Simulated scan of single mutants.
Amino acid sequence: MERWVRSCRHELLDRCLIWNEHHLRHALREYEHSTDTHEALNQAAPLRTVPDPITDPERIIDLNIRRRDRLGGVLHEHSQAA
């Protein structure tokens, strides 16, 4: 829990001026949604294997990564386009 609070403060609360309780709750919901626990593992659940990393330079060049801004650009979601 302490790690989550530290991450939330560093990635969200230190970069955003919170106006009231409603705004705080909205910001926390957005932060919680944007920091999916399995996102870093490429959506792999703890009991599933993690996909092999892409090491071939030809495949790395062709990656199409999309960024979605959240909370006015304070938070960002990245995903690989199909």
Rank of each mutant, 00 (worst) to 15 (best):
E21C: 04
E58Y: 07
N42P: 00
T55E: 10
A44H: 10
E11C: 13
P51E: 10
L47Y: 13
R6Q: 13
A82P: 15
D69E: 08
A44E: 04
L12F: 10
C8R: 01
D52L: 10
A81F: 02
T35D: 12
A82G: 06
D69A: 05
G73T: 03
V5E: 08
I61W: 05
V50T: 14
H76M: 10
H33L: 13
T37S: 08
R29D: 12
A81T: 08
E58W: 14
V50K: 11
T49I: 13
H78Q: 05
R68V: 05
L63R: 11
P53F: 12
I18N: 00
R68A: 05
S79G: 01
H78N: 09
H33F: 09
H22Q: 07
L12H: 06
A27P: 00
L12E: 06
R70S: 05
R70F: 04
V74P: 04
L12Q: 06
S79V: 02
R68S: 08
E32Q: 12
D56M: 01
L75M: 05
T35P: 11
L41I: 06
I54C: 07
T49R: 15
Q43V: 05
Y31L: 06
H33T: 06
H38I: 03
T35N: 15
W19R: 13
I61L: 09
R15L: 12
V5P: 00
I54F: 05
G73L: 01
D14M: 05
H22N: 13
R70N: 01
V5R: 09
D62Q: 11
I60W: 08
D14Y: 12
S7A: 12
L63V: 01
R67C: 10
V74I: 15
E2Q: 14
W4P: 00
E77G: 04
I54Y: 00
I60H: 07
T37Q: 07
E2K: 12
H26I: 15
C16M: 15
R29N: 12
A27G: 01
N42L: 13
R59K: 14
A44C: 03
A40I: 12
H22Y: 12
A44P: 00
R25S: 10
W19K: 12
E21S: 09
T55A: 09
L28G: 07
I65P: 03
R70C: 05
R70V: 04
A27M: 11
V74S: 00
H22P: 06
I61N: 07
L75E: 00
R59C: 07
L17R: 14
I61D: 09
I60S: 04
